[in-house]
Design a protein around this nucleic acid. Structure first.
Lengths: 282, 282
DNA sequence: GAACTTTTTGTAATTTTATTACATAATACA
DNA sequence: TGTATTATGTAATAAAATTACAAAAAGTTC
């Protein structure tokens, strides 16, 4: 992967002249990235085409491409990876690990999301007479957040994290209503039932859940997020962050779809909160 | 430092044509590092010298040097840049932008968090007789999430998103109780009052808020998160994700501090949920 | 709103840089 | 030692980037 390591590894497979180039590069890679092929050739006391051939041997397209790889190696990139928190981690260590895992999972979630489904979901939401967000446990938090976001849009919106209320609400739904059900696993019985009830009563059911799950089967539309759930501590962490980001996306799509005039309304909502706050002095 | 961030920051200082180049680069930096100046110019619909001038404006020696910087930025772990959603963005575009902004802000949040304060907060939480989480609006979601997490620890924990309940709870607090108040701005009057009340009644008050805010001044300990809040749509998005990640961190720190035996308890809680779910067939 | 200045942008020429094609040298092997 | 193979360099060519200059656009001033 890292081209500097690669050079070091393959040092003995190089020819005499290639070896000279390798030595120069390894001894001061920082200089090389700013040098032209001529300069490097001169420093290694070999010809320019030899440098070029050296680059190709390392699976790069040529000298400029090689420099690019070198620059990346030098940047000592530590990409975000899902690292599990360890028993003996210090506060600094687990903080870093959790942040990095969260970011790695967001990256995964982004890749797994289908934008055309998002687009259609936004379509449906903008045309809804009433929007309901249901979730339980950790997913209740996501539903709660969705309420906060959509509430500002001046659209009839409700949120329930109580099984009975969810059921009653689902039974009372009608054509034109949209029910968004959030469940990471998609295997929570009561939520699957709620989805089924809502559908029977002609509501459009959007599931934020895992593809192919029992819940997904009951939904008209499924927004599936694949994340490697960190089950170490028996708490769903990353899936919830990804779901919240998805809510942001849906809310954003909603406002964009509703156009400029609509966004003035958001400003009004925001302004109305002003009196409850201490003024910022600046 | 990071040239991608630099471009994103200086976006409004660019001229019309330079802006075009910037947009192309930001939308697919990975492609640009393999493109010639001619290819990039063509893609941005501007002339080659304009690209060159653009590179120089960013304090690079020219286009190849710019590509080097870009390559390093990309390798540096964070290709994520805070980009604002635009009026005419497609679903794909705003999805990408929101994910990337979220990730960029998590990165920022991580840098701004002080691990020694986290460590002390975990100390305080593990020793608490009772933990209360208070928030309003978007921050209520975070408090709600905190409840979900800490509830599993078999510790007396409450959460209120209602001003009156928060006040009453604060007044009834006593030595050994910990009150965690969440507010991005730290300028919500009622929450500042609640903090003050809790402190008067000998509770330890931890604020998840902005440093130096009115709320921060009332707290015994402040966990401050600096994020560039995306106020485009008048909804706090990134701060909330960062706060939730902080809750994850506190909860993780909590379990680690409590030791192995304690974690068995978490498993019990998890197992107790099993009967409410459809079994996974695999 | 016309005349001027400043800034921005593009065209074409030039220079720099990298690559190719070919020739020569070195090495390996029978 | 002669031949095949590989390695390397020279010179030509191609590609890429930069410069110099001119035209266009945007601001300013009266």
């Amino acid at each position: 992967m890292n081209i500097l390591e690669k050079i070091a590894n393959e040092l003995d497979t190089f020819s005499k002249s290639e070896r000279k180039v390798a030595d120069v590069i390894l001894s001061s890679p920082g200089t090389v990235i700013h040098a032209s092929i001529a300069a490097l050739a001169k420093q290694a006391n070999i010809s320019e085409p030899t440098v070029n051939r050296f680059c190709r041997r390392l699976d790069t397209k040529g000298y400029p491409d090689f420099k690019l790889h070198l620059a990346q190696s030098l940047a000592n990139g530590t990409p975000y990876v899902n690292r599990h928190v360890d028993e003996n981690d210090s506060a600094e260590e687990y903080t870093t690990k959790i942040f990095e895992s969260t970011m790695a999972n967001l990256e995964l979630a982004r890749k797994s999301l289908d934008t055309s489904t998002i687009n259609r979901s936004v379509d449906i939401l903008t045309q809804a007479n009433k929007i309901s967000f249901f979730g339980l446990g950790a997913s209740a938090v996501v539903a709660h957040d969705a309420l906060n976001k959509f509430f500002r849009f001046n659209v009839p919106v409700v949120y329930f994290d109580d099984i009975l209320m969810q059921r009653m609400s689902a039974i009372n739904s009608r054509q034109g209503d949209v029910v968004v059900i959030i469940s990471h696993t998609g295997r929570t019985k009561s939520l699957v039932e709620v989805a089924s009830l809502a559908k029977e009563n002609d509501a459009t059911v959007i599931g934020i859940t895992t593809e192919g799950s029992p819940l997904a089967k009951e939904c008209n539309m499924v927004l599936s997020i694949d994340v490697a759930e960190d089950t170490d501590l028996y708490m769903p962490m990353s899936s919830r962050i990804a779901q919240l980001t998805l809510i942001d996306i849906l809310a954003t799509g909603f406002t964009l779809r509703r156009g400029t005039k609509f966004r003035d309304n958001l400003k009004k909502v925001k302004d109305s909160l002003r009196s409850s706050r201490f003024e910022r002095k600046e």
